[in-house]
Computed example of a mutant assay.
Amino acid sequence: MRLQNVNAVITGASSGIGQAVASHFRREGADLLLTGRRTELPEAHPGDLYLPADLNDENFVSELAARAADRLGEVGVVVLCHGLQASGPLTDMTYDEARDVLHSNLLSSFLVMKHLIPLAPEQGASMVCVSSRLGMVGMPNQAMYSAAKGGLIALARGAAIEWASRNIRVNVVAPGLTATPIIEASFQRRPDPNAYRRMREDSIPLRRLATPEEVADAVLFLACPESSYITGAVLPVDGGYTAF
């Protein structure tokens, strides 16, 4: 019960890594306000408050903060686990597509930071941003996504320094390829899903994908007192991919 009596807000909580983070936090005793793109959570949990989210809309984010203040009072942990995956040649991407990637991964995170950090307790808080290994390295057909996730890392580091005097820690988890429903569905669209999976696994030193629960373990660590002297850090959870 490492998060007992801790109020937490988790974005992107309706599936994948965000859903695993919510499960971990719930197990550790946190009171949760969750957001996601789905109209409702796949499984309802008594005590959780879930709000379908449009985090690109500042009016909604402001309302989210108001609901958090009303329901929770202070917010000791914020996890930014939302985002939009996009791929394709850079020269084929339209301006609107590029804007959507930047808004959904970077500018929406700025809005959540802006409106929720004022709810941090006087003794401090922890914010964990879920970025990507592609925020640290380049990959063909992922340039704009890398730019957005790399921008999120830079935003988190800047916020960590800006808010250090208030004991608000801001850290980043950078997952590698993770077995989320979106990734699994993308594999199934390939002509030979099993061969494609093996090819992707062979690009990872540990030769397998992460599970959402393994990424959530890292998020939980950075949210808990065990990491109380860590801020501005980027923790890769990528099977050694960025160690090449």
Rank of each mutant, 00 (worst) to 15 (best):
R71L: 15
D70V: 04
L51Y: 02
S87K: 02
H45G: 12
L55Q: 03
A53I: 06
M93N: 03
A98K: 06
P89E: 06
E74W: 00
G88K: 01
E74N: 08
L72T: 14
A86F: 01
A53H: 03
Y95H: 11
Q85L: 12
L64A: 04
P42V: 06
R99H: 09
A44N: 13
L72S: 09
D57I: 05
C81T: 11
E58R: 09
E74V: 08
V75N: 02
V75E: 02
D92P: 00
Y95F: 12
E43P: 11
L34D: 04
N59G: 12
A86P: 01
P42R: 09
V77G: 11
G76L: 11
L34P: 11
E58W: 05
L102Y: 07
R67L: 04
T35C: 10
Y95A: 13
V79H: 10
E43H: 15
L49G: 14
A69Y: 00
D57L: 04
G47F: 12
D57H: 02
V79T: 15
A69H: 06
P42Q: 10
H45R: 15
L55N: 03
L90P: 10
R37G: 03
L51N: 07
L51F: 03
R38S: 13
D70Y: 03
L41V: 10
L84E: 05
T91P: 05
D57P: 02
E40I: 13
M93R: 12
L64R: 03
G83C: 08
F60W: 09
L34K: 10
R71Q: 15
R38A: 06
V75G: 06
N56F: 00
P89Q: 05
D70P: 04
L64H: 05
L102V: 14
D57F: 03
A68F: 01
F60V: 07
L80K: 14
H82M: 11
D96E: 09
D96H: 02
H82L: 13
M93V: 05
T39I: 07
R67D: 03
F60P: 07
Y95M: 12
V79L: 09
L34E: 09
Y50T: 10
D100H: 01
S87R: 06
R71F: 11
P89S: 03
H45P: 14
A68N: 08
E40S: 15
R37C: 01
E63L: 04
L34H: 11
R71H: 15
L72Y: 11
A66W: 01
S62M: 15
R71W: 07
V61C: 11
L80R: 15
E40K: 07
V75W: 00
Y50V: 08
A44V: 15
L72E: 14
S62P: 08
L102H: 09
D100R: 10
L34V: 09
N56M: 08
F60A: 08
R99W: 08
C81Q: 01
L72R: 14
V79E: 08
F60H: 10
P89L: 04
L72Q: 15
E97G: 02
